[in-house]
Amino acid sequence: MARYDEVARDLRERIHTGEYPPGATLPKYSDMTTTYGVGRGVVSQAIAVLEREGLVRPIKRTGIVVLDWTRERRRITRGLLVARDPHRGYIFPAASRPDEPWQVHGRPFREYVPASARIAEILGVDAGLPTLRRRRVTSPEGEVPFQLVDTWISPTAVRDAPQVADPSTGPGGYIDRLEEAGHGPLAWTEHTRARLPDREEARLLEISPEMPVFEMALLGTSAMTQEVIEVTVRVIPADRVEMVSELKRASSAAWPTEPVQPG
């Protein structure tokens, strides 16, 4: 076993046994190098392992803080049904449970920011082009930030439906405004992948940059142009969720099985 793995194993055990409870800080680097008889680089590698496991997070001027690793993972069943509420508009498959209150951390805001290479490719615009982004950080009430949600709307769509750039998009939200402008009915596809967060995402979600995240991108395609005109990117720390899918039997897999006739 590599020396940094030994250090990580010992620190992990101390965290799990409660010697370092959630909210506590680990000893300083100088103390750990003395305790374990290793260099600073070995300690850094060990801490990086614990960061990826969601056990600790270095915070400037505070130290290496132990996270609440006892928090139960939220199970997300990714359904395929898009519903509609007459008062709220479209309802997409989400991490929330029926009637569960959620809160917004900070203030939702909208701004024009340079489109990343990925967003530019999805929306068919030049990378770096100032593009409307609506951002919010949410979680179940009383919990730490659970997800970062960015909605990007193409310049063409903003031109056709200017109200999508307003603080209040009106009843039904920005999707209703896009559909009313001639792009309806929108069709959606969802793309899910795992990756590391960028520094801004890690800061807003209060996680380590070493913690992988799930990225779920919901792409909305215009019925008029057959192009993606809006995309909502949901970023969730990987230590907070597990994805659940209910498998269905095709008719060929019905039980009891049909007896095989001798050939």
Rank of each mutant, 00 (worst) to 15 (best):
M1S: 14
Y4E: 12
R9I: 04
D10E: 15
R14M: 04
Y20P: 00
A24R: 03
K28E: 02
D31N: 09
Y36R: 06
A46M: 08
L50W: 04
E51C: 06
R52D: 04
T62V: 14
V65Q: 03
E72F: 04
E72C: 05
R75P: 11
G79I: 04
A83S: 09
S96T: 03
D99K: 00
E100C: 10
F109H: 15
R110V: 02
R110H: 11
A115R: 01
A120G: 09
V125K: 13
V125L: 12
A127S: 14
G128Q: 08
T131H: 01
T131C: 06
P140L: 07
E141D: 12
V144W: 10
P145H: 08
Q147L: 08
T151A: 14
T156E: 14
V158R: 05
P162F: 08
Q163R: 15
S168Y: 05
E179Q: 10
E179I: 08
A181P: 15
H183E: 08
A187P: 01
W188R: 15
E190C: 13
R193Q: 07
D198H: 09
R203K: 11
L204R: 14
L205V: 06
L205T: 03
E206G: 15
F214Y: 14
A217M: 09
L219E: 15
T221P: 00
S222V: 04
Q226A: 13
E230W: 02
E230L: 13
V233C: 00
R240A: 10
M243W: 12
E246I: 11
L247S: 09
A254H: 04
E258M: 12
V260L: 12
Q261P: 02
